[in-house]
């Protein structure tokens, strides 16, 4: 019962708020939308510049599938205030993750449960929004999450321009058309270094298809 209520809340949120804001006020140049995984278990590994990143991903999904997309988000940030915590957990459906750094055994318990449930995890391997329009150093967490999972594909996604529309620490939202480019499933990798190298390579490749990106900016 609770699951149904959560699902309805999420659909309402995406239909009434996220889609109109993202698709009309913000505006997206979407490239290779057909590569977006509609079925789990899958992990979307996106770069992170703005809170809008998560909303953009939701706006790309049909309403019948939005409950499958689960953002993995920092527990210390999203659970600190009771209202934001309630909203994040029950409407957006985040999977809270501790950023303290120590690798505990059951750190990814909820992530694995979600993947087993054929959900699609949305992960930002940079771990933070960082400076506008710059990709920060990628973290290894993603590797530890999926090293033992052979069933899960990883899809790199590049967004560009969202750091202009709503950067970290700013409250004023300014409309800018943003780019979102969906990449191909990552090939197999043996260790965390290989995974991060693959990801960086994919990001710089995808960035080239962004209309709003200029190398000499």
């Amino acid at each position: 019962m609770k699951q149904i209520v959560k699902r309805i809340l999420k659909i309402l949120f995406v239909a009434v708020i996220v889609k109109p804001i993202i698709l009309i006020i913000l505006g997206l140049n979407i490239k290779d939308r057909q590569k977006l995984p509609l079925k789990g278990p899958a992990i979307i590994a996106a770069n992170h510049n703005s809170h809008l990143d998560t909303m953009v991903m939701f706006s790309l999904y049909p309403l019948s599938k939005v409950h499958k997309l689960r953002p993995v988000a920092a527990a210390d940030y999203f659970l600190c205030n009771p209202f934001i915590a309630w909203f994040s957990l029950n409407v957006i459906g985040i999977i809270p993750l501790s950023r303290s750094g120590s690798i505990k055994k059951d750190l990814f318990k909820e992530c694995h449960e979600a993947l087993d449930n054929e959900d699609i995890l949305l992960i930002f391997p940079e771990g933070t929004r960082g400076e506008p329009e710059k990709t920060s150093k990628l973290k290894k967490g993603l590797y530890y999450l999926c090293k033992d999972r052979t069933d899960t594909k990883i899809i790199p996604v590049m967004t560009h321009g969202l750091g202009r529309a709503l950067p970290r620490g700013e409250a004023l939202f300014v409309p800018f058309t943003c780019d979102i480019v969906i990449g191909d499933e990552l090939p197999a990798f043996n260790n965390s270094k290989e995974l991060l190298a693959l990801l960086s390579k994919n990001y710089s490749q995808l960035l080239k298809s962004c209309l709003t990106y200029q190398e000499n900016r």
Binding site: L211, T212, R217
Partner: peptide, 14 residues
């Protein structure tokens, strides 16, 4: 919006 998105604007000018 389209024009401002393809040209460069300074982050300070938001």
């Amino acid at each position: 919006k389209e024009f401002l998105s393809i040209v460069s604007t300074r982050q300070a000018d938001r």
